[in-house]
Design a protein around this nucleic acid. Sequence first.
RNA 1: GGGCGUGUAGCUCAGUUGGUCAGAGCGCUGCGUUCACAUCGCAGAGGUCACAAGUUCGAGCCUUGUCACGCCCACCA
Length: 873
Amino acid sequence: MSYKENKSLDQRLELEEIENRCKKFWLENNVYAYDNTKSREETFIIDTPPPTVSGSLHIGHIFSYTQTDVIARYQRMHGKTVFYPIGWDDNGLPTERRVQNYYNITCNPELPYDASFKPEHKEDNSAPRREISRKNFIEACDKLTASDESIFEDVFKNIGHSYDWNLKYTTISPETIKISQESFIDLLEKKYIASVEAPTMWDVTFQSAVAQAEIEDREVQGFFHDIKFEVEGGQDSFIISTTRPELLPACIAIVAHPDDERYQKYFGKKAIVPLFDIEVDIVASEHAEKDKGTGIMMVCTFGDSADVAWWKKSGQPLKQIIGPDGRMLDIEYGQGVFTSKNPAKANQNYRQLVGLTTKQARAKIVELLAECGALQGELRPVTHMVKFYEKGNLPIEFVSSRQWFVKLLEQKDNLIKAGQQIKWKPAHMQRRYEEWANGLNQDWCISRQRFFGVPFPVWYKLDSHGYPDYDHPIIADRKQLPVDPMSDVPLNYTEEQRGKPNGFIGDKDVMDTWATSALTPEIALGLTNSPLKLPFDIRPQAHDIIRTWAFYTIAKALMHHNTIPWTDILISGFILDPDRKKMSKSKGNVITPQHLIDKYGADSVRYWASRAKLGTDTAFEEQIMAQGKKLINKIFNASKFAMTIVANSGISDYSVSADSITNETDKSWLYKLSSSLEGATKYFSTFDYAGALEVIEKRFWDFCDNYLEIIKKRAYSEDNRSAVLSLVKSIDVFVRAFAPFCPFVTEEIYQALPWNNGRPVSVHLTSWPTEQEFAGIISNDMLYDSISQLTSEVRKAKTEANLTQKTPVKKLVIAAPAKVISLLSAHGIDLENVTNAYPNAIEYIEGSELSINKIELDLDFVPENKKKQDVVG
RNA sequence: GGGCGUGUAGCUCAGUUGGUCAGAGCGCUGCGUUCACAUCGCAGAGGUCACAAGUUCGAGCCUUGUCACGCCCACCA
């Protein structure tokens, strides 16, 4: 496919046309296709983050993903075939939540499938949500994610990301589900996974278990309630300060510190829980701290993870009073574990709590406590930290249930070692990882009581009474994968046996979405027949998901393959509001990536992203994009100008060599250019795209402001060969050096270069310019720097005299070291030209430093345009 | 409570191993340019490099302490 009809550059820079032309051209020519015949050494592998599909792309996505793209493009030009996949993380809770709101529906797994149901977008969400079956719900998720994903894809294409779109995946696709289920079975066989019935952190809104990594602390306004407990015998009493009085019915013990003298006398005795007359032991335990509250506290099932830990050791029964929905369960005192000295009284009080939320129950129990006189004094306000599921609005509860756990705790040391083998950029981010690994205190709960996710490939046998045997699950055969145990049947069973005694039931949970996204290396490899293996080269990601995505990926690579998943991890920063807070949703929605691409052009937005260093949060500053647009414009115009000179030069052999570049100024300039490239390459070798851009950009402005001006006259003259070929080389090099950053404008220019015969179809397939290309051609920086400095000083003198730059120089005395004088006097024609000096106006005297000793300008000079004005005026 | 990071011109940020390191862009002011580019060029003003002490011939850069901001982690009765 050809790029465009007319090969020459347009008169003006038409960004939109260029972008459309490029996008089409790159796709049609498979410019970014990964070549699976190349060896590992010739391949650069990127573990691209699959963005969560739950709404729209944020400018922060564009920021970090573009930085990775710049690296990918550099590596491609550096001679590697780049394995650069892209996926959409569409399974999981964020998607479910969006789907519920978008269609105003909710999943009720009890309902049968309704083939006629078609989800429709509802603007108005005030009506009660329509309940639909699990299968209908998943179909709705599929539908909405598919449309969201096509929008994401457009934005990524518009910004010019060079993914190999043949390597596209979604985390809910059958292929991904298969890989995720294989991972589960592998870890299960290796005994890294087990199902455990235990108190688990539970979000009551989404009614699902959640993992430690998804928990965050939030400051909450609460109250201390001072509650009087009688000691058995009724002679004595003590006060407990608690923020959660609604847990009184689940009290299993009272504890105080062993050294606390105030409570020594109670140890070994029993306390009576008010309202419910539960007899509980008063126990000495390090768990309590003397100077907190009243120093004595109640242990309930469960107020916090400390309660869970204490309960596990104690051998006490579990009294679960909070249900999965966060409401008080309907329990009966005098039955089972709910003992009471006075069941009738306990039940009378507890009946008033049944069905209430914890918050409502707290208010009610305060009433009851006040009535019976157990509540001492006023409630005392306190702000304290409470654990929340990161996506939830209510505190988490500990609910006992059966869940699948990945045994990470026993891997702690290996995880830390693996983290040390990986190169973190910036390096201090490794600390974040290590601290998280060190602080891990729970295994990874991977089951979620949700619907849109990867099902566990597991069924349970039912005994003759219809009770499931959780200890001996039926694991799917690998050949069956992917399976949905709710609709598929285990080997040697029939659908008729589902739910019947001696039959089976399917595991109805789905996996934590991280359990699947921690497999992005394996998922990506599944898309190709390449012989690639872990470890990959780089994992780009943001720092907020070090404890989840990075951590779990390292864990899985370790458990599956006993290797690190990548050699380098590049941590990007955040885009912050001007007030340095993390950019808010509302603002992000106003300034959408597409809006910015439309306003400044994709290359300019990319320029903005490329300027920021890794790992550093930066305030959003739109002006950088305006600056980028100026650069893009300059690249276009300077190239166009240079190409016009070349076209009119009468030169047709564009080969650049020591024979063709004969002028010393040109040699000296090319030396400058060459050393900038050396610097840029060095920066890129440590993934420092920002450093690379800086040196290239700096040299480019030098080229425009100085070199072009210096050689202009010579390039138009008879003896123009060296200057013209130097321009050819300069433009060719700049186009390639800017290509990773500004792929659109550089492609547009590359396609118009008249010396492209036999070269790759796209600039993005050419080789990265290195200093080796200049071998034998270049000299050193002395001459160019000298002319450049003098040019600038003469310019300054003219500016300060309020004269036009065209003003001729009558006399210019230059002081310089002998070495510089000999260079300048032999090759000073450009200096004469650029300063517009009269013949023989330049003189040299010896001095220690290069400087202008004396300058005399032609004050009688009148520019052409002024003359005309005078005539008219 | 523990850890990490940041603090450089009005704003956003560079400053690699301590010695032209006091910078860039934007903004502001002035001047110029219209035959590559007004999406332009040139120049100017502006900073005790958070503060204090120390190491050193020499510190924005190293050490210690202080302050401010941000982030991460922490059993939060």
